[in-house]
Design a protein around this nucleic acid. Structure first.
Length: 307
DNA sequence: CGGAGTAAAAGGCACTT
DNA sequence: AAGTGACTTTTACTCCG
């Protein structure tokens, strides 16, 4: 996910200047009001011109990265109560005054209910992402999805944690991070059914076109859990590609298919792994592995004893 | 024990009323 | 929104080497 700021373009809705590219699907979002702008109508270059390297350096604007998984994007100010602008201690009589000012400053930051909601949501997102070992870039995407949901009033009346989990699951699916709905649900404090409903809601209302869940993405995750070699892993990938060419993958559990392919691959590479271990690694039953395996073997006419 | 197979229950999905 | 039906997975069990 890229976040290219284009300062030369303003949001037609609210006039905000932070237009952010979103989800790598050629969609742009205003970070202020959440307005979604379709198409590539934006000038991504700088709005200034520079003729010498020095000038270029001087005009470049760089700060700490603006992060979407902070409720205030890391941009809010804080007031240091005890020191003046030069870092010297304040006289005693000003301290009380500053303290009051600071109190109201904090309160005004929070006064919008969306801020509170976001703070709550981002805390939960952080927790979930850590528990599921999800990269911060996917976490950022989940944060954007959540902000959009909030702006479109999809959260009202629903549990924040459920929408957060759904947004994170959506980000995983979109970036092909192999996490099942079940796994996300187990890390979440909400149940799987609610998560599934919220996920469908997000997909529908935010008009996200989701790539289908791909068994290829699950292969290496399962292979690592079952301690299988990279060689077996790549054999399994070939098997799945072949299976997909023959349209054997549609409507099947991607984890189960990946596990079966790995089982076949392990046997052809003379690597020993039981269906039981594999079924645990993939979180499917042995029966499913057997069924997929049987289907793969007869449809692909593979022989296990090559090599 | 690991693997193969089966019947019945349960789950998830598209589609209808 | 509940119901239906085709399809997949799970559960629980048996049999084999």
């Amino acid at each position: 996910m890229s976040q290219k700021l284009s300062a030369s373009v303003r949001c037609p809705e609210c006039g905000g200047s932070h237009i952010v590219e979103d989800l790598d699907i050629g969609e742009f979002v205003c970070s202020k009001c959440g307005l979604v702008i379709k198409g590539s109508m934006l000038d991504r270059g700088p709005e200034w011109r520079a003729f010498t390297p020095e000038e270029k350096q001087a005009k470049r604007r760089v700060g700490a990265p603006s992060s979407y998984s902070r409720y205030d994007k890391g941009l809010s100010t804080t007031i240091d109560v005890n020191r003046d602008a030069y870092g010297r201690p304040l006289p005693q009589k000003m301290r009380r005054q500053m303290w009051r000012l600071r109190k109201w400053h904090i309160r005004s930051k929070m006064h919008l209910s969306t801020s509170r909601n976001l703070m709550h949501a981002m805390t939960e997102l952080e927790r979930l992402a850590e528990k599921l070992h999800i990269s911060s870039s996917a976490q950022e995407m989940a944060a954007i999805v959540y902000r959009k949901a909030l702006n479109q009033d999809l959260v009202r009346g629903r549990c924040i944690a459920a929408i957060v989990a759904a947004a994170l699951y959506a980000a995983c699916r979109f970036t092909k991070i192999p996490r099942t709905l079940k796994e996300v649900a187990e890390a979440s404090i909400r149940d799987k059914g609610e998560l599934a409903r919220c996920y469908r809601l997000l997909i529908r209302k935010l008009d996200i076109q989701m790539p289908p869940d791909d068994p290829l993405d699950y292969v290496s995750k399962i292979a690592k859990k079952a301690w299988l070699s990279g060689e077996t892993e790549s054999t399994a990938l070939q098997i799945i590609r072949e299976a997909r060419r023959k349209r054997l993958t549609m409507g099947k559990d991607p984890s189960g298919l990946a596990a079966a392919a790995l089982y076949i691959a392990s046997q052809s590479n003379n690597e020993r792994v039981t269906q039981g271990d594999l079924s645990q690694a993939a979180d499917v039953t042995q029966v499913t592995i057997r069924n997929r395996k049987k289907e793969l073997l007869q449809e692909l006419e593979l022989d296990i004893q090559n090599r």
